[in-house]
Design a protein around this nucleic acid. Structure first.
Lengths: 337, 337
DNA sequence: TATTAGCACTCGTGAATAATGAGTGCTAAG
DNA sequence: CTTAGCACTCATTATTCACGAGTGCTAATA
């Protein structure tokens, strides 16, 4: 469908455009990329490719700019060429030993990604449905409130304030925790069922509190399932593509909405490995001018996603290698410092 | 030192400049503010005031712009006129009953401040030195790691991963927590001392773990003492003063550095009540074009600071009333929803 | 002495115009 | 199929010019 030379032209245009940010003309290609052919020849090819939807002109008689379709080919060719590394399997286990837990490590990772890529780094953990419970604890705050602590596999810690229907002593609460903790190690769905039975049976005296706690636990495990960290965004100021205040704003607004971004990542990071989503391929309209590169892996009831978000004309090769590098650093415990 | 009319001119210039954002000329003042006097008269006053450092001209024969000194007078006059409310005392107690704890409430507060003020809201808690311990808990993660949970007065929860020198069972850890918890309710400085004695005495068998834990506790209590939440920054795009990419960038870069910002707030929010820091009065060079309005109150070992950061020519009156309003909402438990 | 009208002067802003040059499409020759 | 040549397009940049808001100064006035 595409001749060898057409492919070459496409890749060259993308490459040149990523480098310069300016429309690339036939002369440039002839001089720097396809040295054998004259500008006129290439002009003909470009006209064809424009008709086919790979290139476009911002205005009559300007150079050509790659479309998302061209980027797609560029990226796919690159990914094919790149060593397919199967890293990432099982690395989460090692992370959770980090000083500040999985979350601390990810917060560091996102920052590192920003620094190294010169774009915006992201790191997220999402709890898969089958995550296991490690421990539950109730801490009495005052006569009508206690703190519910939930520790999940992978060192994920949640805490919520729960209103107590009646005053319960710390001893009773500890007893309660201890009973619930006998369920540690089971999947949440199982725990949930067992707890329900407990409440109507043994624990009937604390039914109210247990009910609230159950609701909170449900919220924790079903609700905000993905925790996302975003690295420094200052780099964006130096990206020429975002000098335009309008484009900057669009990107910024979505970066600020943790929830939206998290939803996107959940959606994109479904399968393990490296993925690239380019411009209009993004579900969010705010990301039409951006590309997202992400590397995701799942293990033990959690999925971890590292990502970089930048302009469409980002240095994909470098970003991918940065992702790899950071993944590597986390694995080997760099976050411990 | 300042005549009645000079004061009037200053206030008028600031007022007009805040409204329009453009240099204000003698004609405007004569027509809209000091109706009795002619433009020529006001021109003379303005020339004097410029010499005295209250006004300045961006270029020869343009209108005048207020200096920080003029803003200062404007704000001070306003604060004097405003009802001095002593709200804030004791409200923290009520907050900690919030569903997601003090921190959840503050995160919501900062967002609310952004929304209502149209600038950027901030909310911070800082632990004062004399904060009290509520509870400590160790949770075994694997043979060489456990999670250290620290709950402080006010529902502040910290957790850290601690490396265990040798494998300790959950039972032993629980026993350990229980012993340490007998110290709950005391100030950290006291707890620290007592713990030291314990370690060399009763707890000698767990000296290593206790040592690490002690170090972590110290880090938690001495180190990152202030936790800061920043509300949405999207509003900044609509502030005319920050259309200039350079100014925007300066502000943004410091908003992103939680630590820097926290340090500033710690420094500014020393005394209870409402404070305004204008432009060059700010310690940070990035804030030369901004003003910070904050409302701070301390109680029970923690100090809480609400603040709004915006352009120098912000609507101070509105921002102050918004701060008041949000403080009020938090108090009455709005965050519970 | 304080105030004000009049006037010449300054200087940023915005529109209009022109020159520049990179790049194209098309045609005709190799 | 390839390429040189040429006329044409159009964003960009610089230049010029008129406009107008605002000032400082002086001289007249209450």
């Amino acid at each position: 469908m595409l001749t060898e030379r057409q492919l070459e032209v496409i890749l060259s245009v993308v490459h040149a455009f990523i480098e310069s940010g300016e429309e690339v003309g036939s002369r440039t290609l002839s001089k720097r990329y396809l040295k054998g052919r004259s500008a006129a020849t290439i002009r003909n090819e470009m006209a064809d490719l424009e008709e086919m939807g790979y290139l476009m002109q911002p205005y009559t008689s300007a150079g050509r700019v790659p479309t998302t379709r061209a980027y797609r080919i560029f990226v796919d060719t690159m990914l094919q060429r790149l060593p397919h590394n199967e890293r990432g399997r099982g690395w989460i286990k090692r992370i959770e030993a980090h000083r500040d837990g999985l979350r601390g490590a990810l917060s560091k990772a996102s920052e590192m990604l920003s620094q190294l890529s010169n774009y915006v780094g992201m790191a997220a953990v999402t709890q898969l449905a089958q995550i296991r419970l490690r421990k539950v604890d109730f801490v009495r705050i005052d006569s009508s409130h206690c703190l519910l602590l939930v520790i999940l596999e992978g060192g994920i810690v949640h805490h919520r304030m729960v209103t107590m229907p009646c005053d319960l002593s710390q001893d009773i609460l500890e007893d309660l925790s201890r009973r619930i903790n006998t369920l540690a190690g089971y999947e949440w769905s199982e725990v949930r069922e067992t707890l329900r039975n407990y409440i109507s049976g043994e624990l009937w005296r604390y039914a109210d509190l247990c009910g609230s706690a159950l609701a909170e636990l449900d919220a924790i495990l079903a609700g905000e399932r993905t925790k996302l960290y975003t690295g420094s965004m200052s780099n964006l100021f130096d990206v020429p593509d975002f000098q335009d205040i309008g484009k900057f704003r669009a990107l910024f607004s979505i970066l600020e909405q943790e929830n939206e971004l998290a939803k996107l990542l959940e959606q994109y990071g479904m399968k393990d490995g490296i993925g690239v989503v380019i411009g209009e391929e993004n579900a969010a309209p705010e990301l039409q001018n951006c590309s997202v590169v992400l590397s995701s892996s799942s293990d033990e009831g959690t999925r971890t996603i590292l990502g970089v978000i930048g302009p469409k004309r980002m240095n994909y090769e470098r970003v991918i290698s940065v992702l790899d590098r950071v993944l590597c650093d986390i694995e080997s415990g760099e976050g411990d410092e």
